[in-house]
């Protein structure tokens, strides 16, 4: 008798473990907050401020998704992940989405069973060296000691690049950006390599940023974007279209400042559909009609998020470059809201 109950309980537990993969939206709603994986700290992209509140460009995406689901951008639980722990955290269900400078690659999408929901930053891998070394090109780095975050695509690009150019190097594997920074500043490595945006963000926190240069070579394509688990397309759609809403909002001139006026109604049907005053786009996603309004209000549209966190007026000082709207010669091109 007892044994039967135990067996029954085990069977139920097994079934529920199996079913947990589906319907992330319901889980998130039941929990009352979104679990979002971010870096362990990269200024401008995801780092806690003086009060311990996470902020940054990637954090902005998480907050927009939380706002779209709950109407509250603060309903997010942030989980700091390293390059090595991020995928396990996502596939085990510990986090609902990952927004951590993660490069969209074929194997990650197909073999690791993830679903990339778009690109929020078009990046490429670069090298940073102290000015005093007098190095002007990555091809001069023969024999250099290179600090590198382990478990990343940059690790593979680095090996490929040096191999292709037939120059040698000594890799120093590092777990987090903070450790890499410490090693680099202690001169334990000559070069620090990661995504160019990460280099800029790291350099911005140095005491004398001017003493370090980012070399001109960009050795890879690094489309960074938020990702979710395979197998729950509804949840993937929510993340994808929240990101698209931020991008299209910039394109249509919808900002956090003028959104309250625009919600009253405009002559532009696409703005009306985006803001939920026309059509039923929100309910199609399983959300409220004003989901996009909340998402845009959370931190502003894509352009506002960019300027506030990593733009030219911040210490990080990244220009829009590839990340400008397609109308401005960039790559940002959100599908139509229709």
């Amino acid at each position: 008798m007892t044994k039967k109950i135990i067996l029954g309980a085990l069977a139920v537990a097994g079934l529920s473990a199996g079913a947990a993969a589906a319907a992330t939206l319901d889980d998130v709603k039941a929990r009352g907050n979104l679990n979002c994986g971010v870096t362990t700290g990269l200024t401008g992209f995801a780092a806690p401020d003086a009060n311990g509140v996470w902020e940054g460009f990637d954090v902005g995406v998480c907050r927009a998704v939380a706002a779209a689901v709950f109407g509250d951008p603060m309903a997010v639980e942030f989980t700091p992940t390293t390059g090595q722990t991020r995928f396990t955290a996502l596939s085990s269900g510990e986090i609902d989405m990952l927004a951590r400078n993660t490069t969209w690659t074929f194997t990650r999408d197909v073999d690791l069973k993830f679903e990339f929901t778009g690109v929020n930053y078009y990046d490429g891998q670069g090298f940073m060296v102290p000015k005093a070394l007098g190095v002007s090109s990555a091809k001069d780095l023969d024999g250099a000691t290179v600090c590198i975050q382990t478990g990343t695509t940059t690790e593979l690009n680095l090996a490929d690049y040096f191999r292709a150019n037939n120059i040698s190097y000594e890799p120093v594997p590092i777990e987090t950006n903070a450790e890499a920074q410490q090693q680099y500043l202690a001169n334990a490595c000559d070069v620090y390599t990661t995504d160019a945006s990460g280099l800029a963000a790291t350099r911005a926190t140095f005491e004398n940023p001017g003493d370090h240069v980012v070399l001109p070579e960009i050795i890879s394509k690094e489309p960074l974007g938020p990702l979710v688990r395979h197998g729950d397309s509804e949840w993937g759609d929510i993340v994808r279209w929240t990101l698209n809403a931020l991008i299209v909002a910039e394109e249509l001139g919808v900002t956090s400042a003028n959104i309250d006026e625009l919600v009253a109604g405009t002559n532009n049907p696409e703005i009306n559909r985006l803001l939920g005053t026309e059509g039923e786009l929100g309910p199609m996603l399983g959300l409220e009609t004003d989901w996009a309004v909340n998402a845009i209000k959370a931190g502003g549209n894509y352009g506002e998020l960019f300027e506030k966190n990593i733009g030219e007026n911040t210490p990080i000082g990244l220009s829009r470059g590839l990340n400008a709207q397609w109308t401005d010669g960039g790559l940002l091109y959100a599908p139509p809201f229709r």
């Binding site: 090595q84 194997t107 990650r108 478990g151 120093v172 594997p173």
Partner: peptide, 22 residues
């Protein structure tokens, strides 16, 4: 070993390889 970037079995097989292959 991974704490100081020493490439032992945990760092190669249990670290980078797992991470790159899933």
């Amino acid at each position: 070993a991974i704490a100081v970037g020493y490439m032992d079995a945990r760092s190669t097989l249990g670290g980078i390889t797992i991470n790159q292959t899933g």
